[in-house]
Write a protein that binds this DNA or RNA. Structure first.
Length: 494
RNA sequence: GGCCCGGUGGUCAAGCGGUUAAGACUCCGCCCUUUCACGGCGGCAACACGGGUUCGAGUCCCGUCCGGGUCACCA
């Protein structure tokens, strides 16, 4: 069997050169891990920071793990996060196809090229079963010593085989990582990993090297779990005589000191976080800082838009150690983003949540939203905060007691009786008028504002904690409903 | 177990041989105030340990301990 050298030349000729090119290469699992999302973000940032190209590649070489509709989740998430790709399965590009299962032939050809060059060999051994405990020593593979002719004969005879990388027995291999620096390992600690599986599909490790090279990837960004296989990648690149890309290994996002974030442990994916009421921008901002931090004169800065991140991002700022995901801090970022929205945008975003419990179409949603903006950290906490507008909750007369406001049930009774009278006389139900009326009443009765406002608010809302004060709540409720509720409060006190 | 990597407050982190060891989240206190928030001010809290090198070490070297990764025909 002879190799078609022209094929390799053509493939080589297609590789774009001269610009930074990065790729996000997820395998379609059906959801986006937080760690995955962060890797995608960093990969995108490296490309955008350098004015380079960001590529999406789907790694679906594991036939047994294909999940229906899983690639859609990837497209949807990237689009939502505004991590736009310049090349990919959906938009095409100069080095298509961008789905590994469609590149199957390519891997086989390159594997044979590597065999030809003496850096790989056919292996006909039975699939290794789970080794015994403590048996860490690898047995030497007899197939490694087969002559090319012997191997070819068995292949031709239809014997099933895999292709393995031929790792040198002696010496050391050193590779460089942009974050971790130079790492040297002894070759004898490396195993002859499988390159082409029995089913003809490449392993992740092999497909990655081939694709990264053929797609002209300059910065290989991936999780640090691949750090220990990096020497083998280097040997592969060297075996082909290819230039080695810049490795960027990112430390994992942890759920606690011991475990990585994982769906299995019930840790939230990007989709889950969205469902919990987190904003995409806040998630991205938080996640960016979980493993990267700005330096120099912006070292103290935490709030970054995507564009600002792209400008500020640098490999130097990346952390070597794992980072624990902290929901409290994410929540803080979410609150920050919620507050920085324009009142109009916030009202638009909040309205569906307000409507969940406020169904009365008469009530001014914009005003309710205005009260909510500084008072919620997540949109999802809105419904229970505003439920009292529609229906006055059952509440205990004990709520009228408040030490700081100098209010007791007796005082409340007095305040409410007076308030019903003066509020009943208000002609134009505006916030200003309500405010003046009530503060005027407090002054006339020789009590501090709080002593009057407390019972009014309690009677109007029926709960101890409300968004907004007495004046605002009364105004939103309208005159009739306010008076009705205040009278109800009075009854409760009798 | 071998190999590789890491270790600054509870968490994210700055620090690059000389600092009172930043900042943020959380928590606590105070101010503001019409509840709660927002905002403002203040506070608690850290260089894993032991040896070196150096006039001087969180910063450099070695060891110990702890944690993680990897040792798949999964990615």
């Amino acid at each position: 069997m002879s190799l078609d050298m022209k094929y390799f030349e053509e493939m080589e000729a297609k590789i774009p050169k001269g610009k930074v090119r990065t790729r996000f290469a997820p395998s379609p699992t059906g959801y986006m891990h937080v760690g995955n999302l962060r890797t995608a973000l960093y990969t995108w940032l490296i490309a955008r920071n350098a004015g380079g190209t960001f590529i999406l590649r789907i790694e679906d070489t594991d036939q047994g793990r294909l999940v229906e509709g899983a690639t859609d989740v990837i497209y949807k998430t990237l689009a939502e996060c505004k991590l736009d790709h310049d090349e990919g399965p959906d938009v095409g590009g100069p080095v298509a196809p961008y789905i590994q299962s469609e590149r199957r032939d390519t891997y086989g050809k390159y594997a044979r090229l590597l065999v030809e060059r003496g850096h790989a060999y056919y292996c006909f051994c039975e699939k290794a079963e789970g080794e015994e405990e403590g048996a860490f020593q690898k047995a030497a593979d007899p197939c490694r010593e087969l002559s090319p002719a012997q191997a070819q004969a068995r292949v031709d005879a239809g014997e099933p085989y895999v292709i393995r990388q031929k790792i040198p027995r002696e010496g050391t291999t050193t590779f460089h990582d942009a974050i971790f620096g130079d790492i040297t390992v002894e070759n004898k600690t490396l195993d002859d990993q499988v390159l082409i599986k029995r089913d003809g599909m490449p392993t992740y490790n092999f497909a990655n090297v081939i694709d990264d090279h053929l797609m002209g990837i300059t910065h290989v960004v991936r999780g640090s779990e691949y750090l220990s296989s990096a020497p083998k990648y280097n040997l592969l690149y060297q075996g082909f005589g290819w230039e080695i890309p810049t490795y960027v290994h990112c430390s994992p996002v942890m759920r606690d000191g011991q475990n990585k974030m994982s769906k299995r442990h019930g840790d939230p994916s990007y989709e889950d976080l969205k469902d919990q009421g987190f904003l995409t921008e806040a998630i991205l901002n938080y996640v960016a800082l979980l493993g990267w931090s700005p330096r120099g004169d912006i070292a103290e800065r935490e709030v970054f838009s995507l564009e600002e991140l792209a400008r500020a991002f640098d490999l130097e700022g990346m952390s070597k150690s794992p980072a624990i995901f902290d929901l409290d801090k994410l929540t803080h970022f979410n609150a920050l983003y919620l507050r920085s929205m324009s009142p109009e945008d916030f009202a638009r975003a909040a309205e569906p949540y307000i409507r969940q419990t406020v169904r009365n179409g008469e009530l001014p949603v914009e005003k309710i939203a205005e009260l909510l903006q500084a008072r919620c950290e997540k949109l999802t906490e809105i419904p229970e905060k505003v439920d009292f507008f529609d229906a006055l909750p059952e509440y205990s007369a004990e709520l009228f007691t408040n030490k700081k406001s100098k209010c007791t049930p007796e005082v409340a009774k007095e305040m409410l009786s007076a308030a019903v009278v003066v509020l009943g006389a208000v002609h134009t139900w505006s916030q200003e008028n309500i405010h003046e009326t009530l503060t005027g009443l407090a002054e006339g009765m020789q009590v501090k504002n709080a002593t009057l406002m407390w019972p009014v608010r309690i009677a109007a809302a029926g709960k101890a904690v409300t968004p907004g004060g007495a004046v605002e709540i009364c105004w939103i409720l309208g005159k009739d409903e306010t008076l009705r509720r205040l009278r109800l409060g009075l009854e409760k006190l009798n």
